[in-house]
């Protein structure tokens, strides 16, 4: 799946997007977050416990309990500040 990062998270992680194949036991958005934290210090910092960020699965806002089965694109981003 493609994992994307936006705004300051992109800079902290160090890449805007990456193509990843998480292990089979990564079932939810929350599982993915925990797994991503182990990839690099940048990932760990951007996706730290208690950091304010949201997620989307296939371009729809998703909570951490949302299942990843069949997902093509998962995104992580800080709270929105448009308008």
């Amino acid at each position: 799946m493609k994992v994307r990062y936006f705004a300051w998270m992109k800079r902290t992680v160090g890449v805007a997007e990456e193509q990843l194949s998480p292990p089979a036991d990564i079932a939810t958005v929350g599982d993915l977050v925990k797994w991503l934290r182990t990839r690099s210090p940048g990932h760990a910092e951007a996706l730290a416990e208690g950091a304010a960020f949201g997620a989307a699965v296939d371009q729809r806002t998703a909570t951490f309990d949302v299942k990843l089965a069949g997902a093509r694109e998962v995104a992580f981003f800080p709270p929105f500040t448009g308008g």
């Binding site: 989307a56 806002t61 981003f77 800080p78 709270p79 929105f80 500040t81 448009g82 308008g83």
Partner: peptide, 12 residues
Amino acid sequence: VDWLKTKAPFWK
């Protein structure tokens, strides 16, 4: 306006 500020993915 209220909803787009908090529900649309824009970052300043």
